[in-house]
């Protein structure tokens, strides 16, 4: 029964590239329908952890199941059931919005009338109707972000993975984007999102703080603030970074 309740069950996940340890013993459980924010400085291992959970990278040690599928043995099942979007909005710039949507519908094996219905639903939900014939390269950052989100939602994923989705996007677009995210979560979709914006992190159900490859804190935003007795997440973030940086063996080597 545990499998259906937990969207992500991650135990002692380790990833090494040669001698370098990018992710060191990450453990957390995320219930279905929750929004989890992944915060931490650049190079902390957020993206590597995300790629491990998406079934793109093989963990060196540890276990993880995503939507009940094992990341080691069932990566293809995971890929079919998750939606992924990164800060690069990896769309085909020389194709129109509609052509991009058509492409990803095909890639997720949607066919016939079902495909047409899904496309129309997503287009209306994200509000892309007027932009359909436009080439992606002529869109602004905010619109590209929305198209990328639309492409990631076509196959009705149970888990949406967003790697810094709002980096370099204007405040209005950010707000619209997060409204959609919260709506999706209310409808039962689980969302894993990495971000540098603490106002965004504050609205998540759970937060994971990643530093030097380790998950040093996990809990609801309120719990985390209360635990370290900080008024807001910005203070908490800086507190963690300063505390952990002293312990880091690499810093000692450099000085």
């Amino acid at each position: 029964m545990e499998k259906t309740e937990l969207a992500i069950d991650c135990r002692g996940l380790v990833k090494r590239f040669g001698n370098y340890t990018a992710v060191e013993g990450v453990t957390f459980q995320l219930p279905t329908g929750a929004i989890m924010g992944f915060v931490g400085p650049n190079g902390a291992g957020k993206t590597t952890t995300i790629r491990l959970l998406c079934g793109v990278l093989m963990p060196t040690e540890g276990h993880a199941t995503v939507l009940g599928f094992d990341v080691k043995t069932q990566p293809e099942e995971i890929k079919q059931h998750i939606g992924y979007m990164s800060q690069k909005f990896s769309l085909y710039e020389d194709l129109t919005v509609r052509e991009n949507i058509d492409f990803y519908a095909g890639i997720y094996n949607l066919t016939g009338t079902f495909a047409a219905e899904r496309k129309q639903q997503v287009i209306e939900r994200i509000g892309l109707n007027e932009r359909l014939p436009q080439l992606v390269q002529s869109l602004s950052g905010g619109w590209k972000q929305r198209v990328a989100l639309a492409c990631a939602l076509l196959h009705e994923p149970k888990l949406l993975v967003l790697d810094e989705p709002t980096a370099g996007v204007d405040p209005v677009s950010r707000r619209v984007f997060w409204q959609i995210i919260h709506k999706l979560a209310q409808e039962g979709m689980t969302i894993l999102v990495s971000t540098h914006y603490m106002d965004e992190a504050d609205t998540c159900d759970y937060l994971g703080f990643v530093f030097y490859g380790r998950l040093i804190a996990f809990g609801t935003p309120a719990e985390m603030k209360a635990k370290e007795n900080k008024a807001n997440l910005d203070d908490l973030f800086i507190y963690y970074v300063e505390r952990e940086a002293v312990d880091d063996p690499r810093n000692k080597g450099n000085r």
């Binding site: 293809e76 085909y92 020389d94 492409f103 095909g106 094996n109």
Partner: peptide
């Protein structure tokens, strides 16, 4: 899941043709 899937293959094929056609 590991089997060759025509819908995915065709999606890529169509996309390639569209890109080539647009790339004068």
């Amino acid at each position: 899941m590991k089997r060759f899937n025509w819908s995915r293959f065709l999606a890529i094929l169509v996309k390639e043709f569209r890109q080539i056609a647009r790339d004068k």
